[in-house]
Nucleic acid binder design. Structure first.
Length: 247
DNA sequence: TCCCAGGGGCCGA
DNA sequence: TCGGCCCATGGG
């Protein structure tokens, strides 16, 4: 693993504390915490009814959400999840009872619906046959072996669905690290998914709660400030970020 | 009209 | 290994 100079002062705990005090808890999953903050959301999605901590259906629901949100805004995914709940489809066997074309129509608002319908079928088959309907925690390699599950989706399922302390790396994590520590954004290829994941995991307490919140906080920051075109004024990571200091 | 969203698979070089 | 392309709806 390359030891790049710009990362010598990598201080994820400081970033985490700053973002947490700025935004507060994100409560992505389990959904019950989301409900406690906001109750019913505008789309009528009421997670309390469906979320039972540690239940097979909640792990499967997280997995469904993780696939549906691939390159897709969460609002679209929420609407689809609500629809699946109404039809009692947060259930591997029930998903498998549908034809791929029919499932695709149901999840259409989440985009990439043909691909995702196929992915959900593969996922449902996996939960049912290999995980004893979600009662066993999968190995990371098992998830990665499934068509449609890449590193980010696999880690999201493990962290948010099965409470395994793994740090989820995404585009925003890469962008943030680049802008905080690299001299310019052309050096971003220095670390790939696993390198960046190790970097965070080695420099943070092995805590499911921190990994859960941190990933969500980075996404929040990326929406508000650390966009592809950065909006540095007001960013909680200013001063100190290399990007804002020379713009 | 263009850009982006809580990515991943595939293929050619 | 990598870069480019494809998948596709919905909102700003």
């Amino acid at each position: 693993m390359p030891e790049q100079a710009p990362y010598n002062e990598f201080a994820p705990e400081k970033i985490y504390r700053t973002l947490y005090s700025y935004y507060g808890p994100q409560g992505w999953w389990p959904l019950v915490s989301y409900r406690k903050r906001q109750g019913f959301n505008e789309r009528g999605y009421h997670p309390e009814i469906y979320w039972e901590p540690g239940s097979a259906s909640s792990s499967f629901e997280v997995a469904l959400g993780a696939v549906l949100t691939q390159n897709t805004s969460w609002k679209n995914v929420e609407a689809v999840l609500a629809r699946l709940h109404e039809l009692d489809l947060i259930d591997p066997a029930n998903i498998l009872s549908l034809q791929t074309d029919d499932l695709a129509l149901l999840i259409r608002p989440s985009g990439y619906f043909n691909q995702k319908a196929r992915k959900l079928h593969i996922l449902a088959e996996f939960f049912l046959s290999k995980l004893d309907d979600g009662k066993r925690i999968p190995a990371r390699e098992e998830l990665l072996a499934l068509w449609g599950i890449g590193p980010e989706t696999a880690d999201s399922i493990l962290l948010y669905g099965f409470h395994v302390p793994v740090f989820v790396v995404d585009t925003y994590t890469n962008r943030l690290v680049d802008r905080l520590y690299a001299k310019d954004e052309t050096s971003r290829d220095s670390l790939r998914y696993h390198g960046l994941q190790e970097l965070f995991q080695k420099n943070l307490p092995e805590s499911e709660v921190i990994f859960n919140e941190f990933h969500a906080l980075i996404v929040h920051l990326a929406k508000d400030y650390c966009r592809s075109k950065p909006l540095c004024p007001g960013c909680p990571l200013q001063p100190g970020c290399l990007t804002g200091s020379h713009r």
